[in-house]
Structure formats: structure tokens, C-alpha cells
Amino acid sequence: ALVFNAALVLGVGLLLTAAVTPAALKLVLGFLEALWDTMIEWVIRFIAFLARLIPQPEIKAYSMGGGAGTAPQDPSAVADLLQIPDTIRRVAAFIVSALWIVLFGVCLWRMASQIAVWLRRQLNDLDGGEVETLRGAFRQDVRRLLSRVRRRLRGWIAWLGYALGRRPMTDSLPAEAAAVRRLYRSLLAWSAAGGCPRQRHQTPHEILGRLCDWFPDARTKLALITAHYAGVRYGDRRPDAAVVKLLESTWQDVRHMRERSWIRTKKDTSRAGRDI
């Protein structure tokens, strides 16, 4: 567990070091500056467009003897008055760039400080302990990490495909039957997110075998939910409110059992790591 956590931290640190370079920061700042200039230009154009909508003053003819008064003002002068000076634009661009740099620096500092605190805590736990190097342990930890990430991504993709591809309920379906089918879909989405997705060609009883292998402690409860769903989906079974309530309670028990099993496994792994 310690080697796995250290490898994960080192990998994240290397990725951040490779990504945060002066060229990347310069590129980001250049993009922000260009975006700010574009926004200012569009604002100026919009203000100039509004200024052109102001009706022009009527020019009247006067006799030679009378005073003609002041000359009418050029309409373009109004747009010139509404334009933002270059000095203000530069100051605003500098303030925005400085704000982004400060926010980015704060994020990096927070991440680095948290990683440093975690490493310091791990090193303090090893005071007086003996560390034994195992050949190939780092490679196995990396493979295990990639495998977990791949399973998690496959579960998310399967859940997303199942959620987008499911058909809406028809109005003729009874409320109890719709509740059973909705509960079973929640079970499949939950198992897919946990790393046990259902394939398209698998029947409910086939996926039940995989679910029991994935979570053997809830074998009986999973079989109960699957049996009622198969009866509603492929048979003429019409459950009542009591059956729906029983299935909802069973579904909640399965989730709680899984959470307790995950917490117990995590504690056992942590205890085994300290005993090594």
C-alpha cells in the first residue's frame, strides 16, 4: 500500500512538472490576453453600434444675414467618446493576468503542501521500521493502478451507455412493475460504476452469476432482486406494493453491505501494510 501511494504521488508530481512549464504558462497567458482583447474589441464595437442608432441632428438652412450657430457635431465623435482608452485596457489586462497567475499559484501551492504533509506523515509512521525492497513491486503497483483505472472507466462508459440507451417506460405499465424495473436498472448502474458492468448479450441470470462473484456476501439478495425483475420483465408477474417495498429494502441492504465490506477491506489492507 505504501509503495502504491508513493508511486501515485510521484506520478502526479511528474505529470504536474511536465505540464507546468514556462512555455505552457506563456501560452496560457497569451491566450487569456488575446481573449481579453477580443472581448474589449467586441464591447467597443457594440457601443459604437449603439451610438450609430442615435438619430442625427437635422441640418437647417439659415439665411446669410442670421447667425448659423454652432456647427452640428459629427456623429462619429459620440462613438469616439465612448471608446475605452488604451491605458485603461492595458491596466485591466494586467490586473486580469495577475489575478489568473495568483490563482494558479495558489492551486499549485495547495497541492504541493498537501502532498508534502502526506509524505511527512508517511515518513513519520516509518520511524524505527525496516524497509525491504521487493523486485518488481513498483511494476506491479503501476499495473494494478492502471487496471483499476481501466475498470473504473469501463464501468462509467457502460453506465453511460446503459443510461443513454434505455427506453422510456410506457404509460400502460403498472406503477409497481415500473418500480421493479427501475430498481433493477439502478442495481446495474451501481454495479457498472463499481467495476462489474453488464454486457449487451447477457441475460439477467447470466449477469447474476457475475454479480455473485463480484459481491458474494449479497448472493441471496441479488438473486431475489433478479428473480422479481425477470418475472416482471419477461413474464406476466404483477407485483404489489409489499413486494416493491421488500425489494427496495433489499436493495438498500445490498448497498450498505457493499459499503461495510469496502471499509473493512480498506482497514485490513492498511493494517497489513503497517505489519510489513
Rank of each mutant, 00 (worst) to 15 (best):
L222M: 15
A178E: 06
D236M: 07
W118A: 13
D127S: 14
V20F: 04
E259N: 05
M111G: 13
L160M: 06
W36N: 00
W109N: 10
S63I: 04
Y229T: 00
P197H: 00
S113M: 11
R255W: 00
R150Q: 11
A175C: 04
A189I: 06
V102H: 09
L32G: 02
V254F: 02
R255F: 01
K267T: 08
I88Q: 09
R166W: 14
L123W: 12
G65S: 11
A34M: 03
V131W: 02
L173V: 15
W214D: 13
G136N: 07
L246Y: 06
P55L: 14
I54F: 10
L27G: 12
P57H: 05
V180H: 00
G165W: 02
P72S: 05
R271M: 12
F46R: 06
I44C: 08
V28N: 07
L82R: 08
L99C: 03
I225N: 01
Q202H: 15
L8G: 13
Y62L: 07
R264V: 04
I95F: 13
A61W: 10
W42E: 14
P168R: 10
A92G: 11
T38F: 03
D240W: 05
F104C: 01
A177V: 03
H205W: 15
P57N: 07
F49H: 15
K245D: 12
V3F: 00
A79K: 01
A48G: 06
A98Q: 11
R274H: 13
G13C: 06
L82F: 14
L224M: 05
G65K: 08
R154H: 09
Q252W: 11
S191F: 08
A7Q: 03
Q252A: 15
A68P: 01
